[in-house]
């Protein structure tokens, strides 16, 4: 147990920081994923075939390739791609992206593909009559979306989004290649340094379980809130 001491001779403080890092990356990745979903869900439901195609390409490729590969590709290709885009706008200096952004983005891209599918499913299961009804009532398209569709969609999506959250949280264990010190990388370093892998990987498992347990509690509360009125 001394191994978990806080301070310079134990790994307790390092693991605590790493746990916060895991939470920070997961939340950021989830938000980035929502941004991707906000772009790709409408494309999926669009009547234009080529827009469907773009969106399907995104969700199929990301969900069909191991997360590890997506992360590696983003890690080695990401800054190159961004610099290429910047050079089009006439900016030719080296742009450095720190490990946190790289890590969150690569997980966010994955998370976004799952979120897109969840939102698509939720939107499609909203009764078509409601769109018509709001039209008849003369509600603007904007109002229709924010006041009528969005609240229902969120209620329908929350149970499945909690799955996406679990996937996202666990996927963060794979970003140690970016050099970001989250739970998995910290345990790996500690296991290597102390030659006690059983102890540290078991602690990693406990920390992840704690995170999944607490987040489920939180999501259940959220679910109850959104169910109000039904």
């Amino acid at each position: 147990m001394e191994l978990l001491n806080f301070g310079d001779n134990g790994w307790g403080d390092e693991l605590a920081i790493a746990t916060l890092m895991t939470i920070a990356v997961s939340i950021t990745a989830m938000i980035i994923g929502f941004a991707f979903a906000a772009i790709f869900t409408p494309l999926k439901l669009s009547k234009k075939k080529y827009l469907n195609l773009i969106s399907n390409f995104y969700t199929t490729v990301i969900r069909g390739v191991p997360e590890l590969l997506v992360i590696y590709l983003f890690f080695f290709g990401g800054s190159g791609a961004i610099m290429y885009v910047a050079s089009i706008f006439g900016y030719n200096d080296y742009i450095e992206i720190n490990a946190f952004i790289t890590g969150s983005f690569s997980i966010g891209i994955i998370s976004g593909a799952y979120s897109t599918e969840v939102f698509r499913g939720a939107l499609q299961s909203i009764d078509k009559g409601q769109f018509e009804a709001s039209k008849v009532l003369g509600i603007s398209k904007f109002g229709q979306f924010y006041k009528i569709i969005l609240p229902q969609m969120l209620r329908l999506a929350i149970p499945n989004l909690s799955n996406v959250w679990q996937i996202t949280l666990k996927d963060t264990s794979l970003i140690s290649v970016t050099g970001l010190v989250e739970i998995m990388r910290q345990s790996y370093i500690a296991a290597g340094s102390t030659r006690d892998p059983l102890f540290f990987y078991s602690w990693a498992a406990v920390l992840y379980l704690m995170l999944t347990y607490l987040s489920m509690k939180f999501i259940n509360k959220l679910e109850i809130r959104y169910k109000r009125g039904y």
Binding site: L174, A204, A205, T212
Partner: peptide
């Protein structure tokens, strides 16, 4: 509730 990577390690 835990990542597969942790389990395999």
């Amino acid at each position: 509730g835990t990542p597969l990577l942790v389990q395999i390690f």
